[in-house]
Write a protein that binds this DNA or RNA. Structure first.
Lengths: 354, 354
DNA sequence: ATCATTCATGAAAACGTTTACATCAATACC
DNA sequence: GGTATTGATGTAAACGTTTTCATGAATGAT
């Protein structure tokens, strides 16, 4: 006897068999649907003998519980919405991998929304929350997507956790790399190599991480006994902006010996601009990045950079969210993960001939 | 009067107000729930005056229809499952962006599953389909995830479309770049630069695309009147495998003047191996890639490569799937999109001194 | 032997929608 | 002025679960 299963395309010759329901199973096993449900959800409550009958009937019918019905009844969706401002961001894939893994481990699904930085799309994705299609929210956008007033009531939103970009609002859980500590470490490393004139290229004024990393850079500078100049120039986190920053410095003829860049993309731009002008990295200038994007190792010279533990970040963020979903009482928390300094080839001791 | 809205966290002082239901709206508007539903789904069926009352009541209550209830009733989920073997794949982000956009445009959500190439995870994600949490499936894995027999019944599965990696099974819709035509074009380009000894580095025997691109390469060779050697060596699609391939050729002392690589990652490995041996690209060797990964432009030398229209591929794939979902009668279709040759710096005319 | 407990099961009420059908009023027709 | 026709609404039945409560049967204690 062939198993009765889901059939998606109609076969004109025979009657369409819908997916088996709990009632089909119950009938076949000669029990009530309540018993079938119990046999599945809390097997200890049903007698050994009937449990066997039910199991057999389930196997025969190919039954799988309808998730919509379950979720409607249980008032949840087992789904989490992940909102990102750009899927193409080099950090996105790694974080998503972690988010996804942690979610899958606990039976949750991951719904993704690409907001492209527009609040319109943001709002549109929020419907997954308001309609109950998702139970929680992971934000990679750097801000809370609230339509209305300046300070819309937070309790109006489901459990949220932010990652990748810190939020201005401290009342929301955040997990990410410790930007300040990592940047301090990076700066200290450059100083330890003998550099005294270190430029920091930011990722743009809109990005909070710029200020955090700048602040770590400042702290690194302060550690050193010598007076060191706080030398921040603006970038945008793109290779082009890195190139442009270098050009501006050359025009002003105000050159550092080392660059600490907001991210690897900027560093790549900086290096290519320097090389284009005939300089060598690290012999003439040292360049240090942030992120350790997958490509950092294949660039030439290999990028010395701070590694973001992307997958861990994702996993931790999802774990916090799901814990919150499971137990309403949990408070929000911030987790700053350590970022390793990955030493490759783009930084070296200060050259003698400059 | 404050709007009655969803509240996720309990405020001990006052009673918890659940999300407003259709019944709340009906009561407030003084009509039946059927009328509220009609006012929303088919406004033309309800009198102007009552429609206004309903609209007002909806605004007052902050009502949004419960998606679970809707989906249960309407027997669909408005959700699509996207299965990928690796989120970290450089093509993934672009394709996902397209998939996501097309889905969002039509009110569908995108559920993602990272199989990591394991059939265990694949099976586990299939539960979204069998439980009705997703209506359709997008495969970026290169094969159909069927648990059982060698040729499990296809009608047992929901509408499927494959992208990124072609499937062995021709009965499933596929949209991707035209590997053969693009590879032929790439090869012809190298020939037009004067190259007569061109190596093709594959992406590994398991990847069908290796054979397609190899076949296009062969066709490109055949076009040329001179006898040209079919010169395929095995790689794995990684920079390391590209490096290794170069080393093997040097050991055999059997060198081409140009390399056509399965993908950009391989090309990057090839170039770095050549540079490490003191050769220059493109002066000494030409190297051509495939994909045009975001980084290809920032590599040095800029990678000449075939551009995959990733976002278009994703959009087209999703469109086909959703069309199929909307109208069962549609047959499967394959769409091969044109891949542009992007000329940068890694290929040049054959050098005089070799 | 009686009565209180435990244990396994079934009946039925939710969960929040959509929609076929019935109802009734108002209009149109002759 | 009686009868079709149209139009707007309400009633109630689904959709497929989980879970409270009630019902009996079997067990245990006295």
């Amino acid at each position: 006897m062939p198993a009765l299963q889901h059939v998606w395309t109609r076969n004109m010759s025979e009657p369409v068999d819908r997916p088996a329901t709990i009632e089909d199973v119950a009938k076949l096993a000669g029990v009530s649907i309540a018993t079938v449900s119990r046999a599945l959800r809390s097997p200890e409550k049903v007698a050994e003998s009937t449990r066997k009958k039910v199991t057999a009937a389930i196997a025969r019918t190919g039954y799988t519980a309808n998730a919509m019905a379950q979720n409607l009844r249980m008032q949840r969706s087992q789904m989490v919405l992940v909102l990102a401002s750009s899927i193409a961001d080099p950090n996105f894939a790694g974080i998503l991998t972690g988010l996804e893994k942690a979610a899958a481990d606990r039976g949750y699904g991951v719904l993704i929304g690409n907001t492209e930085g527009t609040t319109g799309l943001e709002q549109s994705y929020m419907r997954f929350l308001s309609t109950g299609m998702a139970d929680g929210l992971v934000l990679l956008t750097g801000h809370i997507p609230v339509a209305g007033e300046p300070q819309a009531p937070l309790h109006t939103l489901p459990p949220i956790v932010a990652t990748e970009r810190p939020l201005a609002n401290p009342d929301i859980s955040y997990v990410g790399v410790d930007d300040v500590a990592a940047s301090k470490m990076a700066t200290e490393y450059l100083i330890s190599l003998g550099h005294r004139k270190i430029t920091f290229i930011s990722g743009g004024p809109a990005d909070i991480r710029s200020d955090l990393r700048h602040s770590g850079y400042q702290q690194g500078l302060k550690e050193s006994p010598e007076a060191l100049r706080d030398w921040r120039v603006e970038g945008e986190g793109t290779p082009e902006s890195g190139r442009a920053a270098v050009e501006r410095l050359f025009i002003k003829d105000d050159l550092p010996t080392a660059f600490f860049c907001f991210n690897d993309n900027t560093a790549i731009g900086v290096i290519s601009a320097l090389q284009l002008r005939g300089y060598r990295v690290p012999e003439d200038f040292s360049v240090l990045g942030f992120d350790d994007i997958p490509f950092a190792n294949n660039f030439s010279p290999g990028l010395t950079t701070i590694r973001q533990p992307r997958q861990h970040i994702g996993e931790k963020a999802m774990t916090i969210l799901l814990d919150r979903l499971a137990n309403r009482s949990l408070e929000h928390q911030r987790h700053l993960l350590h970022g390793d300094l990955i030493v490759r080839e783009s930084c070296a001791g200060i050259s003698r001939n400059r």
